[in-house]
């Protein structure tokens, strides 16, 4: 499973999202779009969004920290 998180360093929901993934031992690529123009363009293109966080799970895009949707795509059980 390939997981990418598009975020900025100062966004509270991004921090919560990354903590959530770490708690469930999910490995992910952490991309700071404020430092990486190409990644920002990729995120905007894929999500149609100018807001963070955006998470990509095996090609599927989830906008914001939508815990239910993310848990479902990652097959997480509470």
């Amino acid at each position: 499973m390939k997981v990418k998180v598009f975020s900025t360093s100062s966004c509270p929901y991004c921090v919560t999202l990354k903590e959530f993934l770490k708690e469930h031992n999910i490995e992910f690529e952490d991309i700071d779009v404020s430092q990486n123009k190409a990644a920002l363009d990729e995120m905007v293109e894929k999500s149609g969004q100018m807001g963070v966080p955006v998470i990509e799970i095996d090609g599927k895009i989830v906008i914001g920290f939508d815990k239910e949707k993310i848990s479902q795509l990652l097959n997480l059980k509470e």
Binding site: T8, S10, C11, V33, S34, V44, M50, G51, V52
Partner: peptide
């Protein structure tokens, strides 16, 4: 946006 520190860098 309602969160400048989140989305401002974009």
């Amino acid at each position: 946006s309602y969160c400048s520190v989140c989305d401002g860098p974009m």
